[in-house]
Nucleic acid binder design. Structure first.
Length: 223
DNA sequence: GCGACAG
DNA sequence: ATCTTGTCGC
């Protein structure tokens, strides 16, 4: 599929933040997301001991969750890990993997956050703008925002609030497991995003998209 | 000012 | 992210 060229690569933190600020106005938020996506792509990156990394994209049938297509791209950490600038670390390799895709997914599911970010422009926002596709983020641990623990049952949620605004939702994807943090990235709304994530979690805490991409990227690193 | 901080 | 065994539970 086609992916917009990222931009001139930032030389440092200040330049990276400037890029986020420049792209943020391009976000399309509060628009209805895909309630029943035909295909959903999961993205993840694994790291080796030496700085090598492997980015993986796995496209699943939105209904059966069967694998439709897979793509892997090898690369190198493109930026140091800085909370808030995490996207710049994995973006180049993820874009490579996406470009190799024959399928154009109806929805992208990222490891990390969307607008639940200090400058409201996390990885899911960045990938959304670059691809023009509906995109959401699923985080495993809290980053920004305050929240109350959601109820103990699958589907229970509580709002994630930062700076006086709701930036995401804490979602329990299975009875009694630790909740995940869902936030909108691009071209979708929070209700649809949470519905999508729940649909992608028929059995485990993390979405099948994420689990599949994680496994693929890890295997690619070994092989 | 200090600490905390997605993966 | 990654370093890491057994163990409890369905």
């Amino acid at each position: 599929m086609e992916v917009r060229v990222p931009h001139e690569w930032p030389s440092g933190a200040a330049a990276a933040e400037a890029i986020q600020d420049r792209l943020r106005p391009l976000l399309e938020l509060d628009v209805p997301g895909p309630a029943a996506p035909r295909t959903v792509a999961g993205l993840d990156v694994s790291y080796a001991d030496d700085g090598r990394l492997a980015a993986a994209v796995v496209v699943l049938d939105g209904t059966t969750l069967d694998v439709v297509e897979e793509s892997v791209a090898a690369g190198t950490a493109a930026f140091p890990y800085v909370p808030g600038l995490f996207a710049f670390r994995e973006l180049p390799a993820l874009v490579d993997a996406l470009r190799a895709l024959k399928t154009v997914p109806d929805l992208l599911v990222c490891d990390g956050f969307g607008v639940a970010h200090p400058r409201r422009f996390g990885l899911a926002c960045h990938l959304g703008v670059l691809t023009g596709l509906p995109c959401l983020g699923v985080g495993k641990t809290a980053f920004v925002g305050a929240y109350a623990p959601p109820g103990p049952r699958r589907g229970d949620t509580s709002p994630l609030v930062d700076g006086g605004e709701v930036v995401g939702r804490v979602l329990r994807t299975q009875d009694g497991v630790k909740p995940v943090f869902v936030s909108v990235g691009h071209r979708t709304d929070l209700d649809t995003a949470c519905r999508n994530v729940l649909d992608l979690c028929p059995r485990y805490r993390l979405p099948e998209t994420t689990r599949r991409a994680d496994r693929l990227s890890r295997d690619a690193l070994t092989a």
